[in-house]
Design a protein around this nucleic acid. Structure first.
Lengths: 148, 148
DNA sequence: CCTAACAGTTAGGCTACCTAAATATCAAGT
DNA sequence: ACTTGATATTTAGGTAGCCTAACTGTTAGG
């Protein structure tokens, strides 16, 4: 039956996709293990760059629960990379802002990680890089479908 | 300069790639959170399917250290999904083999996860699915470059 | 035999996540 | 004003998965 064939193809693709996901987790771990700033902290810090991120927003954006975001923010604060201040408009809320040191740390971490990945991408053929580039927006779309 | 332009393009692609990696971790977490068998355990269990996986091999294959593999194996053993037995050829070594229940659990977990992902893939256009399919082998290549 | 290398387990510790409960503030309705 | 329900964050306590260091037992080469 045609629908079954289509389903089978989809399931096979899903299987390969899952394998890529698994490896991605592994790659992220390696990438993290060679840096001072964890990717969880880097994610929080990036959101604090504009100067007025709220805890709930950070959590939502990162796909974690609010207490997990608070935890990372406290660590960053202790490291002097962000500061927490009361929201002038809503005293329940907290504004998280990157300090100058935080800003520098993001740039550093981002650069180092990008260079590492770029080094690997540089060993690929142009066709391979094109394939990656073409797939990234689709990956993004898939990843957002998982939300919640 | 030409090389700098090329580098910039590579760095930009690296940045997007990293973003996809970050989201992959998130997706894996969601996927895991709705299942009984964690993906760490599923990985171990799959390697025990053929009946004679060794702890060191499992660890290497999964990209974790030996004690981490042992930990997962013990959990699976307690759940009755694998059994550990002495290697007849080398008494230092341990053979990890899936039980019938373990075999069934893998099939179940794999099917459910694949169906979930296939469901999402099914909402994409054929062109988008093609883009994913074309990129997966390249992802694989990149991921293996990170080894060690 | 002895010793170095190897296979695994145990012990102890870390990070990042989670849920539930506490605190404080806000916004509405009365 | 006053209560009440919703919202924002923190605190407390717990889990999973990973790591390194140290220990036990086995093997293999000199």
């Amino acid at each position: 039956m045609n629908t079954n064939q289509a389903d089978d193809a989809l399931l096979a693709l899903a299987q390969s996709f899952r394998e890529a996901l698994r490896q991605s987790v592994y790659v992220m771990r390696r990438l993290d293990s060679e840096e001072q700033l964890s990717s969880a902290q880097l994610g929080v810090l990036k959101m604090a760059l504009d100067g007025g991120a709220r805890v709930g927003g950070i959590a939502r954006n990162l796909g974690v629960k609010v207490p997990s975001a608070t935890e990372q923010i406290i660590k960053l604060e202790r490291a002097g990379l962000v500061k927490r201040e009361a929201d002038p408009d809503d005293s329940r809320a907290v504004r998280v802002a990157a300090t100058a040191a935080g800003r520098a740390a993001v740039e550093n971490a981002d650069r180092r990680r990008n260079e590492y990945i770029a080094g690997i991408l540089g060993t690929l053929s142009q066709a391979e890089r094109d394939a990656v580039e073409a797939a990234l927006p689709v990956f993004d779309k898939i990843n957002h479908s998982v939300q919640n």
